[in-house]
């Protein structure tokens, strides 16, 4: 993806030099190997900091709300859908936003990769679809395709849905036989098995709220978990409180989640919180024929009324 990095730097430099934007939000390499972090640059000299590789899994749509001035932002397919969400939900004006679209080949699941190597990873590099990992034992190469994040495997919108600039040629979208195989699998389980699955899923949760903070959909001035009057949910490590938090957090994303995977990426305990949101994505698709963030002119299904809305659950 080095061509992407080059192109992104060029576009950023040009935008900042011509003062078309006040700042560019993108990714730079972190201080430890295998970490890319968001960065905001205001000077064209800093454009060299910008990178784009398979580690840029965080969603930059999180940094574009209510901007001061005009901003440019790097967007993968999923991120661009969240930017559409933001415009639809009046969090940013389209005129204040310059989107540098990046056709995405999928992001790498770092924790899965870490399981494959022994010892600490000291350096990381990638060339096309090959990942090069350096550890104390030496250099190892892996195929990127084998270490894609789960949500990237199921992604059907790799190309940005809106963009002002493109950092590369569009990639072919994946054709999936059954995009909801993972949800169907859980749905086929018994009540008890489902219950056990979700109880096990959240048992390591430390309530750090990283999933919420990483999520571009979570922008309430006061989150329901932080409120103390009234206190909607207990703040303890009690299992019921933990599950209530996860259930409600997920439900707030109904009809809005783009499956960008930022929540899972941010989780320090490697909890697959997508297990909750995936069901909601399937439901909104089946009940409302809706996929979030594809059309800037449409209101989301939970925001509108249509006499044809399914209502068989009302007694």
């Amino acid at each position: 993806m080095d061509t992407y990095t080059k192109k992104i730097r060029e576009i950023a430099k040009d935008l900042l030099a011509s003062q078309k934007v006040d700042r560019v939000i993108g990714f730079e390499m972190g201080t430890i190997p295998m970490a890319a972090r968001p960065v905001s640059i205001e000077s064209e000299n800093d454009a060299e900091k910008l990178v784009f590789n398979s580690l840029c899994a965080m969603n930059l749509a999180n940094y574009i709300r209510k901007p001061k001035g005009t901003i440019a932002v790097i967007a993968k397919g999923c991120d661009s859908r969240n930017m559409v969400n933001h415009v639809v939900e009046h969090q940013v004006d389209r005129e204040n936003l310059v989107i540098i679209g990046v056709p995405c080949h999928g992001m790498v699941d770092k924790s899965q990769l870490a399981l494959e190597v022994e010892g600490e990873i000291t350096a990381y590099d990638e060339e096309g679809q090959t990942l090069k990992i350096t550890t104390a034992q030496g250099e190892l190469t892996f195929e990127k395709q084998d270490f894609l994040k789960d949500n990237c495997r199921l992604c059907q919108h790799r190309n940005p849905v809106i963009h002002d600039y493109m950092a590369g040629d569009p990639v072919t979208e994946q054709e999936l036989e059954d995009p909801f195989a993972d949800v169907n699998e859980i749905e086929a389980m018994s009540q008890e098995a489902k219950s056990t699955l979700f109880e096990d899923l959240t048992k390591n949760c430390i309530r750090c709220y990283a999933c919420r903070n990483a999520c571009p959909l979570c922008f309430c001035p006061t989150c329901f978990v932080d409120e103390s009057s009234p206190q909607w949910v207990g703040k303890s490590q009690n299992k019921t409180d933990v599950d209530t938090f996860h259930f409600l957090r997920a439900f707030h994303c109904a009809g809005r989640c783009t499956d960008c995977g930022a929540c899972v990426e941010a989780c320090p305990m490697d909890i697959d919180v997508r297990k909750f949101t995936r069901k909601l994505i399937k439901d909104s698709y089946e009940m409302f024929g809706w996929e979030a963030g594809l059309d800037i002119s449409k209101r989301p299904p939970l925001d509108t009324f249509n006499p044809a809305d399914p209502d068989d659950f009302i007694m």
């Binding site: 098995a193 489902k194 979700f198 909750f276 659950f313």
Partner: peptide
């Protein structure tokens, strides 16, 4: 639907 997905019986919640 989501509650049922998590293993809460469907008949416990009514609208």
């Amino acid at each position: 639907n989501l509650l049922e997905h998590m293993g809460v019986e469907k008949d416990r919640i009514h609208f």
